[in-house]
Design a protein around this nucleic acid. Sequence first.
DNA 1: CTGTTAGCGCCTTCAG
DNA 2: CTGAAGGCGCTAACAG
Lengths: 335, 335
Amino acid sequence: MAGIEDVARAAGVSTATVSRALRGLPNVSDATRRRVLAEATRLGYVPTPSASSLATGRTRTIGLLTPWVSRWFFANVIEGAERALRDVGYDVLLHTFVVRRDEPRRRVDPDVLRHRVDGTLVVGLPLDDDEVRSLVGLDRPLAFVGSGPDDQVTVRLDDVATGYAATRHLLDLGHRVVGHVTGVPDLVSSWSPPAERSLGYVRALAEAGVDVDRELEANGDFDVEGGRASTAELLRRRPDVTAVFAASDEMAMGALLAARDLGLRVPEDLSVVGVDGHDLGEVAGLTTVAQDAYQQGADAALLLLEMVNGAPVPQRLTYPTELVRRRSTGPPRAS
Amino acid sequence: MAGIEDVARAAGVSTATVSRALRGLPNVSDATRRRVLAEATRLGYVPTPSASSLATGRTRTIGLLTPWVSRWFFANVIEGAERALRDVGYDVLLHTFVVRRDEPRRRVDPDVLRHRVDGTLVVGLPLDDDEVRSLVGLDRPLAFVGSGPDDQVTVRLDDVATGYAATRHLLDLGHRVVGHVTGVPDLVSSWSPPAERSLGYVRALAEAGVDVDRELEANGDFDVEGGRASTAELLRRRPDVTAVFAASDEMAMGALLAARDLGLRVPEDLSVVGVDGHDLGEVAGLTTVAQDAYQQGADAALLLLEMVNGAPVPQRLTYPTELVRRRSTGPPRAS
DNA sequence: CTGTTAGCGCCTTCAG
DNA sequence: CTGAAGGCGCTAACAG
């Protein structure tokens, strides 16, 4: 409840000096600063954010845009980013965008962010060019995690390499008819991870001299039920499939369910590999190409802060992945 | 970039009228309102939040306090709350608190929330009395999800009944030596769900005339690895255990891993039941007492908004749970 | 129904 | 090194 004026009065200085002293600005004598600090503490003074925002234009808040919080990748990125930001006294404003199969999602509206954040972190949300432009138009730092336009600061995997690694693992085991459960049906942007993972898949097949067939790919919408349904569909179309590469662990878990539904043993009848390194992957015995989502969130947040502070930052941080072999993959049955 | 003054000038009215018109307040003629709206839209006017906060004392922001975002219950509550709030134009400020086994966590600091939120939602974060008092001292609406003090608005399960239901299911299957993997070692508050679930466990055992033994309980820290370790410990202490009730699905998954580690078959050698209804429970074949975390988050958010608007709200919303039977539970082996 | 006038609480030149 | 004073952009009485 104490205002800056109370502190000023108590310390016998002006409000300007209090402001300077408390924010660690120069041009305040040590003695004065100590006195101000002491009085501020004693009175329990805390600056009113809206007042200082109004005066400075800064909010010490970062906007976090994401389609979900309850999925592995997103939850971990958010957690990593929030903690990194909190550590330096920044708040996180959470904005989710419902993304559904059929209906188009609500568009990203820069007006909701304007004057409300010092920067924006877009987590795994595919934006069209207009949306990106509108965020750029906020004239505040902008960074992407998981995927992002080529000309924006982005923290992500090498998704082509990731898809390649997963597929290659299956090929190395001897599989020759490999299905692919991918992420999204229609891409609003050209920089989508599922598209690139799919490219890696195709590349690995081609390199191995294996036929690539559109019938071997199906959309699993990045969730368990989608993975289950599309794997079932895949197996209906091509009963000779012996392995499936799913573009996320959650879809891969769906693939495991589909196998069980159909009475197929894993990995004897069907091998499954995912992407993520989901916490529960071990329980399911899921082979996966693992990534560190938490750290990507934290690093992206730090990058964004650098930008907020006007420091130069690398345009792109590419994270490593690691193949984790578990029970869900093995050599195909001898046919 | 256009300010309220620009709109006022363009519409040929005062800023006060613009403010009234745009916020749908009475005492503005239809014609004027339309004109103002048109000009505001044309100029792309959006009120600066910090300015209106400073003037009104309202922020249209809710603070969300939680220990994690990457765990099932928390992620779903957060998602539900965020969407409910966004729908009515409220922002969510996310605050996480690292909770670790050993070290004490950072204390909840009301100063970070002061003048920054219109209300606070505490999600599954055990607070001590001082912390609760400090939040109450903010003089803003406060609500809890998952657990909360008796005298505060809380949305939660009947945790005693939940623990009872899970344990009862095992007893009904014929188990007589039932272990319990609980949540936390030392409770900072008396209203913790793990403590109540444990109470339900004890009650069910007592009712069935089965001995209750402290050795049959172990702390699993609410995560997979904790569940794994404590289940292993449990089985070491009491090799005659035939079933385990874990206070969360994530710990239950850990119990499944422990069983596998020890070469025990589930459910023939060990039955496992959890609590939550985790999305991946089906993949693991996990029997569970399911709850709807998303809806609890959404409802708590709505309750909080009612309070912000000065409406009376029920002190307590108790959510139903439902036993979902899967492969992880079955009758004990005939000994 | 509409305009005028003070603030809301802090920051930031500009003097001194 | 410090203080005075204006202003950030909007809202809330109070007149009219």
